[in-house]
Design a protein around this nucleic acid. Structure first.
Length: 339
DNA sequence: AAATCCGACAACCGCATCGGA
DNA sequence: TTCCGATGCGGTTGTCGGATT
């Protein structure tokens, strides 16, 4: 890394010779192993804090600020390295929705993770998705998208990596995250009934509904809460969306797949390429026994809806996998419809 | 094989706040 | 009460390494 100087040439000219000399000696950029050892040894002997004093007395040619940052973000023994787990990601999404960019506050709830790490995660992963969706990451619309899609996916990941009920393994705050995920407007059967578009309206649309994720472990017998019970599912992209003919008309709330554009829409908002949602599934929620689950797919005259108790497909199936077709039919049977 | 692009993350900067003199 | 140094926080930048062209 280059050894940048804090002040430009003109700034240096205004310094005293001594100040300039001191400034010249200050190191910047990546820390060396020797510097790390110096810092760790000093803190081992004298403890944390008093960073400017530390910087002066330790022999490090760094600012106190730089020493503090290096220690807190990298050298501190309880720092957790490696990728964020789905649990941690879920917690970040939930806490950020509550507190915004209060990184240090969020970090307090993720032991071993630093505010810097969380901030970087948000900027590189979450904001990237927002950019792709052409929405502001702090907008209500994006937060809803996170709650409706991202959180359920993380819950699925969590469930797939544990043999126990996910909720039982999580600290209380995670229940909040689950509740947020489950409170999606698409995750309540009651709400669904009021928001689902007409099965015969808007030809060419695909509506999907993510099944509820019950925050309460005690209600797992309903089948709604046990993400762990969801079967392995084929990739969403296997559905060959590109073969669906769509007018793109959206009626009511839900998820629209506009196959003409290849994008998903949420309540009229362009959510970007369908592939982005590839590992989420219409299918797993259809396969789940949750009664609140619902999905609608309307494409070029092939109109299906699940969850409202009706499903018609007079023009034949446009489902692109046998699994999805079977699951839809099964779900439809449960709800009293017919394919 | 070289050049370019891009994601990830460490580090820096400016500002706000705190606390002691 | 005011001043000033120390510390904390969030935004931004720079660098590195892997992927892609």
């Amino acid at each position: 890394m280059s050894q940048r100087r804090a002040a430009g040439p003109m700034g240096a000219m205004t310094m005293s010779k001594q100040e300039a000399a001191e400034e010249m000696e200050l190191r910047r950029g990546p820390w060396t192993l020797e510097e790390d050892n110096l810092l760790m040894n000093y803190i081992a002997c004298h403890g944390e804090g008093r960073w400017n004093l530390l910087a002066r007395c330790s022999g490090l040619k760094r600012t106190g600020k730089s020493c503090r940052l290096r220690w807190l973000n990298y050298l501190k023994p309880d720092i957790k390295r490696g990728n964020l787990t789905p649990e941690e990601q879920l917690l970040i999404l939930e806490l950020h929705s509550k507190w915004g960019n209060r990184w240090s506050r969020i970090a307090q709830h993720l032991p071993g993770r630093t505010d810097n790490e969380i901030k970087n995660y948000w900027r590189t992963r979450v904001q990237k998705q927002a950019r792709q969706l052409k929405v502001d990451a702090n907008s209500t619309v994006f937060r809803d998208a996170v709650r409706c899609y991202w959180m359920p996916r993380l819950l699925e990941k969590m469930a797939s990596t544990t043999v126990h009920h996910a909720a039982e393994l999580l600290p209380p705050l995670h229940h909040g995250a689950m509740a947020a995920a489950s409170s999606s407007p698409f995750n309540s059967h009651q709400q669904y009934e009021t928001c689902v578009p007409s099965a015969t309206g808007g030809a060419g649309n695909v509506y999907s509904h993510y099944g509820p994720v019950d925050p309460s472990p005690s209600t797992s017998t309903s089948g709604c809460s046990t993400a762990a019970a969801l079967p392995p599912v084929p990739c969403f992209s296997e559905l060959r969306w590109d073969q669906l003919e769509s007018s793109g008309e959206l009626d009511g709330t839900g998820v629209l797949f506009d196959s003409a554009l290849g994008n998903l829409n949420l309540d009229g908002l362009d959510l970007g390429p369908a592939e982005y949602y590839s590992d989420s599934t219409l299918l797993d929620y259809l396969n789940s026994s949750c009664t609140g689950s619902a999905m609608m797919m309307m494409s070029g005259g092939y109109n299906y809806s699940c969850g409202g108790g009706a499903m018609d497909g007079d023009h034949g199936s446009t489902w692109r996998t046998d699994e999805l077709c079977q699951a839809a039919a099964r779900k439809l049977g449960e709800w009293g419809g017919g394919i």
